[in-house]
Simulated assay, not measured.
Amino acid sequence: MWPTAELHVHIEGTLEVPLLLTLAQRNDIALPSHDAAVLRARYEFSCLQDFLDVYYDNLAVLVHERDFADLALAYLQRAATAGVRRAEIFFDPQSHTSRGVAMGTVVRGLSRGIEQARELYGIDGALILCFLRHLGGDAAVATLREALPLREHFIGVGLDSSEVGFPPSLFREAFEIAAAEGLHRVAHAGEEGGPDYVWEALDVLGVERIDHGNRALEDAELMAVLRHRQIPLTVCPLSNVALRTASADLAEHPLPVMLDEGLLVSVHSDDPAYFGGYVDDNVAALRSAGVVSEATAGRLAANAVMSSFLDGDAKARLLDEVRAYGAARGIELLAPASAR
């Protein structure tokens, strides 16, 4: 398994059915069914909103700090088996504080799970606090101010949830506060929304990474900027198929075009409990579809490491590990353009 970094994963989207059932029983939470097969059958979606409805319903089982720690630990245990050495994990505090769960319960619980995973599995983790765009810019500012006393527990902010109708520019103030605090900034853009959403994320929010970004291919000028600045794009193929934001045939996924265009693109899992797989599953599906070779899988792993927020020395060590893995298999990997 190629060593890599996971940069686009929502911790709430890693809530597998067995853990969902365990937490529901532990916290006396009613579910639509307590039959695992029935619950899994709900994970068929025709659009992003269909997914979000089920996703938010399931969050009711997350109540106590221990629940959030168990969620993070379960994801990181699985990620470690996929070759992930560094996980930069999105979390949505508003989806919990709106249910009466304290911000500290969420953040400290997730941090505890990360610490446990570091000790048990040797995997490094960090948190990125995401704003739910459908709640608006003022709510994002209030959420960030509420979270800042816990600043030591997260490294950045992001923007997720329903994209269309909620352009990045609505969140300018929250991202300006985050920048002043020295926090990293990322945003979902160009999944459902068009290239204009990607432009706004770059020019208005000053993001360092674009999550998804598939629709950037529709704008040649934007592509040139992404290529020249080597702005990372964190692509999630199985998610694209599940939510119908790309062809149902993975052989037609835009990933090869993005690579051919010289973009700093990497593969991630998004919401793996709902979309059929973790990082290794996504890469395996792309390989089965004939989209990537073993050498390309290595390139994607290296791109993910380069796109991470690891410091220079840690990034160099992990890149060396990726290259050594390739060399043992007769594959020579060039450094991504931004590392040359």
Rank of each mutant, 00 (worst) to 15 (best):
H10P: 00
G213R: 02
Y197G: 07
R108G: 05
F171H: 08
A37D: 15
D249Q: 14
S239Y: 04
A74D: 15
M258N: 02
N27G: 04
P336Y: 03
D124S: 13
S266A: 13
Q116I: 09
Q25T: 14
A295L: 07
E191R: 08
A142K: 15
R185W: 10
V204A: 08
T81Q: 15
L226V: 02
A189T: 10
F171L: 10
H96I: 06
G83P: 03
L62I: 05
E252N: 12
A295H: 08
L286D: 05
A304F: 07
N58Q: 12
A140C: 14
V235H: 14
V106A: 04
E65W: 00
A328H: 09
M103A: 12
P167T: 13
F51I: 02
R340N: 11
Q94T: 12
Y43E: 15
R151N: 00
E261S: 12
R118K: 15
I89A: 01
V225R: 14
G100R: 09
A335K: 13
G312R: 12
A179W: 03
F51P: 06
P272Q: 06
E191V: 09
R118A: 15
G290N: 03
Q94N: 11
G109A: 08
R42P: 07
P93S: 07
P254K: 06
N58E: 14
A248V: 04
A251I: 06
L127Y: 01
F171V: 10
A140D: 00
L263K: 05
W2P: 01
G182D: 04
C47G: 15
R227K: 13
D35S: 13
E119L: 11
E332M: 11
P237K: 03
A79S: 14
L264K: 01
L226M: 05
A36F: 13
A5V: 03
F309W: 14
V204H: 02
E261A: 15
Y325C: 13
Q25R: 15
P256L: 14
G276R: 10
F309M: 07
Q116D: 15
M103S: 07
H153D: 13
G262A: 06
Q230E: 13
T245S: 11
A69W: 03
L62S: 05
A80P: 00
R42F: 00
L250W: 07
L222Y: 00
F68A: 02
A69E: 11
M306V: 10
L170F: 05
R299H: 12
V204L: 08
P256Y: 08
A337H: 12
V61E: 01
H8C: 09
D219A: 01
